[in-house]
Amino acid sequence: MSWQIGGKTLNSRLFIGSALYPSPAIMQQAIRTSGAEVVTVSLRRQNPSEGGGTSFWQLIKELQLNILPNTAGCHSAKEAITTAQMAREIFDTNWIKLEVIGDDYNLQPEPFQLLEAAEKLAKDGFEVFPYCTDDLVLCQRLRDVGCNVLMPWAAPIGTGKGLINPYALTTLRERLPDMPLIVDAGIGLPSHACQAMELGFDGVLLNSAVAQAGDPVNMASAFASAIDAGRHAYLASPMPEKNIAAPSTPTLGTPFWHQE
């Protein structure tokens, strides 16, 4: 079932990263197998003698996917805005995965600089995909300054811990019912991605969980299935959880029962 995000129509709800794969060939194969239609990339200093990123960019272009450039490594609104402007020129897209890091230990987003950058970039015509924490008020402010999608973390980048605060993510879904929400970062297992989708999130962005698996291609397939399963489960309205057991087999006509 297709859906809309950032002015584009997609079929897959998996956004995938392009880093940390064992080889360029495995990267291409894993991304293709994932069915993802959006791939994240970065900008880094390179010298002409190193090929200037040409070979990597050629591999990505061959995939013919939507490009979501990131501002990874930026620690201020100024750095992030400049990186976004450079990305728009290189990749010819107004999409930007806005990352402003506030703490290098857990790579936690810097909410104040993130908000400042998001506002300026949105006014400048960018479609801002902000990597943020699961703080409800921050997410509301990001919406208020022009973000049409939010990307709260499940857990710190690269930890693979899964949804460390399901309550906060559930609250985001309930309080922002019309805002596209994509869980970004911290996913380790397909079951984590499935859980996010079951909560009603619109998509999942991940990288390490596939790239650092023993078999990235097979794991990409597993994530595609899990995200699909979670989406179907959400649409199917799961049964309410209860504390008291209730037999599923009819009790009427149970053999060996007799009146005392």
């Binding site: 990339v41 390179q46 990874a72």
Partner: peptide, 10 residues
């Protein structure tokens, strides 16, 4: 002066 090119990213 900073000169940047596409590279892998998550």
């Amino acid at each position: 002066i900073d000169i940047v090119s596409p590279l892998e990213g998550g």
